[in-house]
Design a protein around this nucleic acid. Structure first.
Ligand SMILES: [Zn+2]
Ligand SMILES: [Zn+2]
Ligand SMILES: [Zn+2]
Ligand SMILES: [Zn+2]
Lengths: 165, 165
DNA sequence: AATGTAATGTTATAATGTAACATTCGTTCT
DNA sequence: AGAACGAATGTTACATTATAACATTACATT
């Protein structure tokens, strides 16, 4: 299954989450460096807050935190940072939840396929070429040319399945 | 390609749209009859307004119309009707647009794959088993069990492609 | 008619997101 | 260093989307 890339994994219970955050931030640094984009302190902080959990994070949750740290923080403060991070592929918006998750392997265009666990709330991301190609083929059959697919799948992660049957 | 069902088609330019609406409404009548659900005048009217166009319709656009017809119409009036229609599979919400489209072939669970033309704004819906099975298989590979996929694909419909290259 | 449930009315407010303009910050050029 | 420019952030105001909570009405069954 070579073409199935995992961009963001479900956690297997307890883990050293600080490492997830650290890794995400340094990947982001490198990414922006590479692209000649500025990962300012504000943008970095927002990215850190998005990575605060493996579940989706809402814009106003981020704002609540930022407000305590910077006087004058307002919705545009957060939304602009989120827009930037999305453009860089560092975070994805989950449209069906109006919330955001970090991307573990940025550099690809758009988001892959987001897997959302209904039980624990965690979100994983895979990016499978076969799925995209099949969707493109089926779309072509009806005359449609894909530019950007949004795929958000709700279900149950392995851990939650093993826990409650 | 037997497993590719078309639940809602792109239009080929001009057509007798009144027929689309009439058909949708009688299908809905039959559907609700079948299920023992009540397609009240209000719900029917909302469904009709959703079918007013082949493009997505917003809740507050519907509300604007209903307000002129019924004093006392308020957001819950529309959202409750939309919720009912979604439960019956008569309309789908497009999460990435916060808007609604009618389903041309209700009776299936959830929505199929929505195709959204960036040029003309029209939305088609296909429901392809192969796509769903492949997604399910790939998800299983990472231990994930699908309950409901949300697939919304932006691109260009056949007509728009032939028109502007 | 009485009763119970589903549907709608009504008021208020929550949650999400953006427009528009002012200010500050960083870089580049002289 | 200072000027000049664009990018980033601050600030205010508002637009859009959606729901909570409770009152009333309509409908079906007895
Ligand atoms: Zn972690
Ligand atoms: Zn889970
Ligand atoms: Zn039509
Ligand atoms: Zn089109």
């Amino acid at each position: 299954m070579a073409r199935l890339k995992i961009l963001r994994e479900f956690t297997q219970g307890r883990h050293k989450h600080a490492d997830c955050v650290t890794t995400a931030l340094s990947v982001a640094e490198a990414c922006c460096q590479q692209e000649g984009q500025r990962l300012t302190p504000l943008r970095k902080r927002v990215l850190q807050l998005v990575w605060n959990s493996h579940a989706p994070v809402k814009a106003y949750q981020i704002l609540d935190v930022i407000r305590h740290e910077k006087s004058g923080a307002a919705p545009p403060t957060v939304y602009r940072a989120l827009d930037f991070l999305q453009e860089q592929g560092l975070v994805h918006k989950i449209e069906s939840l109006n919330a955001y998750v970090g991307c573990g392997a940025p550099g690809h265009v758009g988001s892959g396929q987001l897997l959302i666990c209904r039980d624990c709330g965690e979100v994983a991301e895979m990016d499978d070429q076969e799925v995209l190609e099949l969707l493109a083929a089926k779309s072509r059959d009806v005359g449609f040319e894909i530019t950007s697919p949004t795929i958000e799948i709700k279900g149950r992660c392995a851990r939650c399945r093993s826990k409650h049957g």
